[in-house]
């Protein structure tokens, strides 16, 4: 107890009022942020039933994926890189696949929205955690889940398709094959960066994660519809008009080095009206990359300006 008694004729107690600088030795900032990312990953995984539901969904999708891979490999898709690109893009890990959206909804609603609704912003921002660090923690924690949901299918589809083409272990490790897996993983990161930025940004405006799903799911279907119409109209850059949800497969075709001719052969019909795949794919890649940077910048700006009301 720090107590002065210079007022000897008074019963009043005068306590120390001077400021004593805080000198506690704490963990380095990097460790603090790593701890927080881990805590955030654990927080997203609660309640447990949601994660169990996702694991079950994931398992069901593995079954569906294996059947898809089997169909691709035994059907008219004969060329290995094409079948892998097609399989990677199909359904659950396309640019805005169903699983991604479900997961994105859940992650978004349990990351920033949760803090917003619960008022926990105030608890983060009254600690030595800057708004940039807060965003970093949230982004990495949700990226952990989103990337795992794009990487896992890429890996087992690579293994499964390889098996259908009678790959030996050496074949899997050959650079010309293995580089395709790395490209698939890189594609997963791109999907994550785009979706994560979009979803986290939206989650700053809505109170419930369902609202995000209501906004995003129609985008997927509108994109598909535009893709079909522009294809039927034989528009030269048809896939680009459909927007990012339809870009995934063309980015993969471009990255895998698939030509228009190979695409025509594999699809079984001529697409000679289309601009070169390399052009469409690279433009799609640049658009998605640019949008991801733009969305993340907006997210960063919003977080910097964020006031806890």
């Amino acid at each position: 107890m720090v107590e002065n008694d210079y007022k000897s004729n008074s019963s009043a107690k005068i306590y120390e009022r001077g400021y004593r600088p805080w000198k506690r030795q704490m963990q380095p900032k990097k460790m603090v942020l790593l701890n927080l990312i881990w805590e955030e990953i654990k927080l997203i995984a609660r309640p447990r039933w949601v994660i169990i539901m996702f694991i079950i969904l994931r398992f069901l999708l593995i079954v569906k994926d294996i059947l898809t891979v089997y169909g691709i490999s035994t059907g008219f898709f004969q060329q290995f890189p094409f079948s892998l690109a097609y399989a990677i893009n199909v359904g659950n890990n396309s640019m805005m696949g169903v699983t991604d959206l479900l997961l994105a909804y859940y992650v978004a609603s349990s990351v920033i929205s949760r803090d917003r609704v619960s008022g926990a912003y105030a608890l983060y921002f009254s600690r030595d955690i800057s708004r940039t660090e807060y965003l970093l923690v949230k982004f990495i924690a949700s990226a952990f889940y989103m990337t795992s949901f794009t990487w896992l299918p890429a890996i087992y589809k690579y293994v499964a398709i390889g098996a259908f083409y009678d790959f030996t272990p050496i074949d899997y490790l050959k650079w010309k094959n293995f580089s395709l897996l790395l490209i698939s993983l890189g594609y997963g990161v791109l999907v994550m960066a785009f979706l994560n930025s979009l979803i986290l940004l939206l989650s700053m405006f809505v109170k419930k994660g369902w609202y995000i799903a209501i906004i995003i799911i129609p985008l997927r279907y509108i994109s598909d519809t535009i893709a079909i119409i522009t294809f039927l109209l034989k528009v030269k850059y048809a896939p680009l008009y459909a927007g990012p949800p339809s870009y995934g497969e063309y980015i993969l075709y471009w990255a895998f080095g698939i030509s228009n001719e190979q695409l025509s052969n594999n699809l079984g019909f001529q697409i000679d009206f289309l601009a070169p795949i390399s052009k469409i794919g690279s433009i799609a890649f640049l658009i998605v990359l640019g949008l991801s940077i733009l969305l993340f910048s907006l997210l960063y700006y919003k977080i910097q300006k964020l006031e806890v009301q």
Partner: peptide
């Protein structure tokens, strides 16, 4: 800082809640 409004992840236990915030403060 103790805010006026409740600012909890209310499904957490009191101990978990304080522990997470202690980690955010820099404790191992």
């Amino acid at each position: 800082y103790c805010p006026e409004q409740d600012a909890f992840w209310s499904w957490m236990t009191g101990k978990e809640f304080v522990e997470i915030l202690a980690k955010a403060k820099g404790y191992s």
